[in-house]
Amino acid sequence: EAHAAIDTFTKYLDIDEDFATVLVEEGFSTLEELAYVPMKELLEIEGLDEPTVEALRERAKNALATIAQ
Rank of each mutant, 00 (worst) to 15 (best):
E1V: 12
E1I: 11
E1Y: 06
E1G: 12
E1Q: 12
E1P: 11
E1L: 10
E1F: 07
A2S: 11
A2P: 09
A2G: 11
A2M: 14
A2F: 14
A2Y: 15
A2L: 12
H3L: 14
H3I: 12
H3P: 07
A4L: 10
A4V: 12
A4W: 11
A4K: 14
A4S: 12
A5S: 09
A5Y: 07
A5R: 07
A5W: 08
I6C: 04
I6M: 06
I6H: 04
I6R: 09
D7Y: 13
D7P: 05
D7I: 14
D7R: 14
T8A: 10
T8I: 14
T8V: 12
F9N: 00
F9M: 03
F9D: 00
F9T: 00
F9W: 02
F9G: 00
T10V: 15
T10S: 06
T10F: 04
K11A: 06
K11D: 03
K11F: 13
K11T: 07
K11S: 05
K11V: 05
K11Q: 08
Y12T: 04
Y12S: 03
Y12W: 15
Y12D: 02
L13A: 01
L13R: 00
L13S: 00
D14H: 13
D14A: 13
D14G: 15
I15P: 01
I15Q: 01
I15C: 03
I15W: 01
I15M: 05
I15F: 02
D16C: 06
D16E: 08
D16L: 06
D16M: 06
E17P: 10
E17F: 11
E17A: 12
E17G: 07
E17K: 14
D18T: 12
D18M: 12
D18R: 13
D18K: 13
D18V: 13
D18W: 14
D18I: 12
F19K: 04
F19M: 12
F19S: 04
F19G: 02
F19I: 09
F19C: 07
F19Y: 06
A20P: 01
A20N: 01
A20D: 01
A20Q: 01
A20M: 02
T21H: 10
T21N: 09
T21M: 14
V22R: 15
V22N: 06
V22K: 15
V22E: 04
V22F: 15
V22L: 15
V22M: 15
L23P: 00
L23I: 03
L23C: 01
L23M: 03
V24R: 05
V24Q: 04
V24M: 07
V24T: 06
V24L: 08
E25W: 10
E25K: 15
E25R: 15
E26I: 14
E26N: 15
E26H: 15
E26D: 05
E26C: 10
E26Q: 15
G27L: 02
G27F: 03
G27D: 01
G27N: 02
F28H: 03
F28M: 03
F28T: 01
F28E: 00
F28Y: 13
F28K: 01
S29F: 15
S29C: 08
S29I: 11
S29V: 10
S29K: 13
S29A: 09
T30V: 03
T30Y: 04
T30M: 05
T30I: 03
T30L: 05
L31V: 04
L31S: 00
L31H: 00
L31Y: 00
L31P: 01
E32S: 07
E32T: 07
E32P: 03
E32Q: 10
E32Y: 12
E33H: 12
E33N: 06
E33R: 11
E33W: 05
E33A: 12
E33F: 06
L34R: 00
L34I: 15
L34T: 01
L34G: 01
A35L: 14
A35R: 03
A35N: 03
A35H: 02
A35D: 01
A35I: 13
A35Q: 04
V37R: 15
V37D: 05
V37G: 14
V37A: 15
V37W: 10
V37M: 11
P38M: 07
P38K: 07
P38N: 11
P38H: 08
M39S: 09
K40D: 10
K40S: 13
K40V: 09
K40C: 07
E41A: 12
E41C: 14
E41I: 14
E41S: 10
E41D: 11
L42V: 05
L42Y: 04
L42Q: 03
L43C: 05
L43A: 06
L43S: 05
L43G: 04
L43R: 06
L43N: 04
E44L: 14
E44N: 13
E44S: 14
E44K: 15
E44H: 14
I45C: 03
I45G: 02
I45T: 03
E46Y: 12
E46C: 08
E46D: 11
E46N: 11
E46I: 14
E46W: 12
G47L: 05
G47W: 10
G47C: 06
G47M: 07
G47N: 06
L48E: 02
L48W: 06
L48I: 10
L48K: 02
D49L: 05
D49C: 04
D49K: 04
D49A: 04
E50R: 14
E50L: 14
E50P: 10
E50A: 12
E50F: 12
P51Q: 14
P51E: 13
P51T: 11
P51Y: 11
P51K: 14
P51L: 11
P51M: 11
P51D: 12
T52H: 06
T52E: 06
T52Q: 09
T52G: 08
T52D: 06
T52M: 12
T52Y: 07
T52W: 08
T52S: 08
V53R: 04
V53N: 01
V53T: 05
V53K: 04
E54P: 01
E54V: 15
E54D: 07
A55I: 10
A55H: 08
A55R: 14
A55Y: 10
A55S: 08
A55W: 14
L56Y: 01
L56F: 03
L56W: 04
L56M: 06
L56D: 00
L56S: 00
R57S: 05
R57K: 12
E58T: 13
E58Y: 08
E58S: 08
E58N: 12
R59D: 03
R59A: 09
R59N: 06
R59E: 03
R59P: 00
R59C: 05
R59T: 05
R59I: 04
A60R: 01
A60V: 08
A60I: 07
A60F: 02
A60G: 01
K61G: 04
K61S: 06
K61D: 02
K61H: 07
N62D: 08
N62A: 14
N62H: 12
N62Y: 11
A63Y: 05
A63H: 04
L64T: 02
L64A: 03
L64H: 02
A65K: 11
A65F: 08
A65G: 07
A65V: 12
T66K: 11
T66W: 10
T66S: 10
I67W: 04
I67S: 05
I67K: 06
I67A: 06
I67D: 05
I67P: 03
I67G: 06
A68G: 10
A68H: 13
A68I: 09
A68V: 08
Q69F: 03
Q69A: 14
Q69H: 09
Q69I: 09
Q69K: 10
Q69T: 09
